[in-house]
Design a protein around this nucleic acid. Sequence first.
DNA 1: ACCCTTATGCTGAAACTGAGCATTTCAGTA
DNA 2: TACTGAAATGCTCAGTTTCAGCATAAGGGT
Lengths: 320, 320
Amino acid sequence: MTSAFALSDHDSAQLPLATELIAVIVASSGGAARILTIGGGDRLPSGPLESRHRSLQSGLRAWVEAQTRHQLGYMEQLYTFADPDRTGSAPNVRVISVSYLGLTRESQKASFSDAGWRDWYRYFPWEDHRAGAPPLIAAAIAPRLSAWAHGATTAALRRERRQRADITFGLNGHRWNEELALHRYELMFEAGLVEEAHRAGADLRERAGLFGRPMVHDHRRILATGIARLRAKIKYRPVVFELMPDEFTLFQLQQTVESLSGRLLHKQNFRRFIEQQQLVEETGDIATETGGRPAKLFRFRREVRIERAIGGTKLPTPRS
Amino acid sequence: MTSAFALSDHDSAQLPLATELIAVIVASSGGAARILTIGGGDRLPSGPLESRHRSLQSGLRAWVEAQTRHQLGYMEQLYTFADPDRTGSAPNVRVISVSYLGLTRESQKASFSDAGWRDWYRYFPWEDHRAGAPPLIAAAIAPRLSAWAHGATTAALRRERRQRADITFGLNGHRWNEELALHRYELMFEAGLVEEAHRAGADLRERAGLFGRPMVHDHRRILATGIARLRAKIKYRPVVFELMPDEFTLFQLQQTVESLSGRLLHKQNFRRFIEQQQLVEETGDIATETGGRPAKLFRFRREVRIERAIGGTKLPTPRS
DNA sequence: ACCCTTATGCTGAAACTGAGCATTTCAGTA
DNA sequence: TACTGAAATGCTCAGTTTCAGCATAAGGGT
């Protein structure tokens, strides 16, 4: 056992390092949650930390701007990976990947180079329950997970797999929980249903696209991490802020939340919830293009932002 | 545009990197929350990632074991830092610090070398509200924060500072929120109340110890991050598991939770909460050394662990 | 037997949730 | 101009959950 304090002296222990900053940038418009991608949609903006970057965050901002010409607002750290076999890069270098979640307004008119906004449900078709549970789950996912569970070697393992599938996908009496997006992706990966699981040379490759569009390396996993985090956070922190224009109707706000959480909300209860939070105030103006009775326009109250940024919140319940 | 990994070519951008893994290891015994420290209590176990480590987690486990002879159970990532001036180390090297939170049972009889368990409230005396708000807050913290807020240059800034102080420390009608441990430390830091704020050469150094025991570098900040995370998590995930012995009374469980959250709970409601969660089952045995009526002994139900590890939970409310 | 201490059981008011029904106010359209 | 469809808004109500106590049980010690 190497002694605890012999560290930096041991040249043998030295490890060639590289860093990678990866961004999950989310926006929502017209009832669709979108993410900022490059490479025609199969990778997230990313790049290494360089000496000119003052911090991880600023480095990431620089990369995103360089690759997409998009300026970022709110950001928070997601996760840091350093698995030896994580990326397809040089085998002797340890890559440390730090991922961030960013929320923004999809301002810049679309694309620079090969950057662009994509609906995030293209990558996770099983995550959108706004029109009820997607048929894909019952038709394709559930049976395959079942087969996978059945194929386990021990009874205990079979039971555990079945239980995980039931819980994460809301099968057999369990409720759908939208926050388990990452668990679901990991399960799909373990069960070999997503294309990424077969990268290291396998035969059973799934028909591309059936279980969502794949991404480079583990970018889709990182995206799932971001979705799960955002769906959880939105319930107790006023992060939707960052996604909304200056003025909006309550229904637009609701639709934004719905697009992120992937489920519909009871309209009246959503309003009650928002009002009781005192997050918004009327602007006095009225939106006329709603199709029915015109809706009042609201804006977020500046005053609350500090308090809310610290305090807490909760989200109301599903609507039929 | 440069791909994520093409960068190693740019020698100019190359950055000498080093890593640091830092552990916040928590245990609770006898109603006291403790953390595992080295250096006589002023630093957290830590060490660089080396080539023999298969992952960040396993590297950290190795370091903690080497430095403290303590074996770890549950761990989760806390945060990753890479500020250029973070540590006192060589100025031309960028250190990436990845911190983890670990929960354990304080098994190993105390110490190896200079390792040891310390009550975490020694580092954050203002965080323990089990016997009511510590007098320190009203006597020393509140007035100094007030002065600090008053010293701001603009009215808006003054207002913001005052508001932050009120919210985070539960002053002027605001409620104490134990989850804001990190916010509070950051506020104390900004206001120059903690010793660490004056490291870069200042004069106003506070009397050491009045505002908690300082630590090396930013270790105390990392500890605050861990406390805040644990206090939040304990409410919706059954993480106390990891801190309890195999058999325990409900009151011991409650005291463990109380030691972590720093506030007392209503006993009957805590029981109802635990029962309704169905996390525990009676062992059939009875603890006799309680001082009053003997208490039933409980253990955690194995069956629930998977579901709970995924699902959710909530914590009941304060007791007087 | 009496007292002190902690465990455990119960209860009632208040607050919160989930689901609807009812009314208001536009834009079109017969 | 009255009628209709589409939303926005307002209100109600029952079922749950939460908060805070009161009451009783069951040990040890004097």
